[in-house]
Simulated scan of single mutants.
Amino acid sequence: MSEEFYGQIFTKQQKLEYVPSNKEITRWALRVIHLLYPEQTAKVFSTVDELKSEFALLEAELYKIMEATSACADCDNKKRAAGFFESLPHLYQVLNTDIQAIFNGDPAARSEFEVIRTYPGFFAISLYRLAHSLYTRDVPLIPRILTEYAHSKTGIDIHPAAVIGDYFYIDHGTGIVIGESCTIGAHVKLYQGVTLGALSVDKSMAFTKRHPTVQDNVVIYSGATILGGETVIGSNSIVGGNVWLTKSLPPNSRVYHTPSIRILKKLTRRIFGEQK
């Protein structure tokens, strides 16, 4: 290999010398979530002052991460880090509505503790909400790292720019995709395999509204695909499993997929030489 090649790689490494790894960034985020929900780790502080100190430490760490990952020389990262932590009481209240929605909506949920400790839907939502708060403060890179980490752990892919209302409920969750410009109202419930995506992935559509809007009190069952920035699912609607939608639904709609199924009442075949 040429000296020029070695030089290119070395120069790139020098530029990244002080950039924290994805693992360090996600570890910071999980520590924030664990402070809000000690049910996940059972870590208990002896005094309120100890808890305050831990929050202050995490704020200082966020500032350092922002300084290392932001290419903006004029950005006040200290102010943005402080603003994020000032927003935590509101974020905590919203996350509590998500817990309530999951607990109230899932017959299998025995306690809110169980929801916090074991449900992948809540894990993905909590990292999304944290990432979205950073995203709205124009923090680059970190929000995508956090939601992609949640994606890798749960199979739930939520872009940090998506806008999602209170009492959000993801049931099972694996395979859910929520696109960048998606808007979701309050009291919405999604099952596994739901896609809220774009009709086109052409690069020219960047920075446009290309993902659906889902209004309040909507249920979307497993495998449904809803595409397009002009597609609106009206409030109080139900979208059945495996439905494909590229057009809007008015409020109070019910739409279902009706597959053609043939049932063989009597099936004769041989298995391992025996008549079945």
Rank of each mutant, 00 (worst) to 15 (best):
D106T: 01
D106A: 04
P107V: 13
P107R: 04
A108M: 11
A108N: 09
A109H: 01
R110C: 05
R110Y: 10
F113H: 10
I116R: 14
I116P: 00
R117Y: 12
Y119F: 14
P120T: 02
G121Y: 02
G121F: 05
F122T: 05
F123Y: 15
F123C: 01
A124G: 14
A124Q: 06
A124L: 10
A124M: 09
S126P: 13
Y128H: 13
R129G: 02
A131R: 02
H132E: 10
S133A: 14
S133W: 05
Y135I: 04
Y135S: 08
T136Q: 07
R137M: 13
D138G: 14
V139A: 11
P140N: 11
I142A: 01
R144Q: 07
L146S: 02
E148H: 14
E148D: 12
A150H: 07
K153W: 09
K153M: 15
G155N: 09
G155T: 10
I156Y: 03
I156H: 06
I158Y: 04
I158L: 11
H159Y: 01
P160A: 07
P160C: 07
A161P: 11
A162R: 08
A162W: 05
V163G: 06
I164P: 13
G165Q: 08
D166L: 01
Y167F: 15
Y167A: 15
F168M: 07
D171P: 01
D171C: 05
G173Q: 01
T174Y: 00
T174G: 06
V177G: 08
V177H: 04
S181T: 15
S181Y: 04
S181A: 11
C182Y: 01
T183K: 15
T183D: 11
I184M: 08
I184F: 06
I184W: 08
G185K: 12
A186V: 14
H187T: 10
H187W: 03
H187N: 15
K189E: 13
K189L: 03
Y191D: 00
Y191P: 10
Y191R: 08
Q192K: 06
G193A: 10
L199E: 06
L199W: 07
S200E: 10
S200P: 04
V201C: 11
V201R: 12
K203I: 09
S204N: 14
S204D: 13
F207L: 13
K209G: 05
R210D: 00
H211G: 12
H211V: 12
P212C: 07
T213R: 13
T213C: 07
T213W: 08
T213S: 14
V214K: 00
Q215F: 05
Q215N: 12
D216H: 15
D216E: 13
V218K: 06
V219P: 08
I220W: 08
I220M: 06
Y221W: 12
S222I: 05
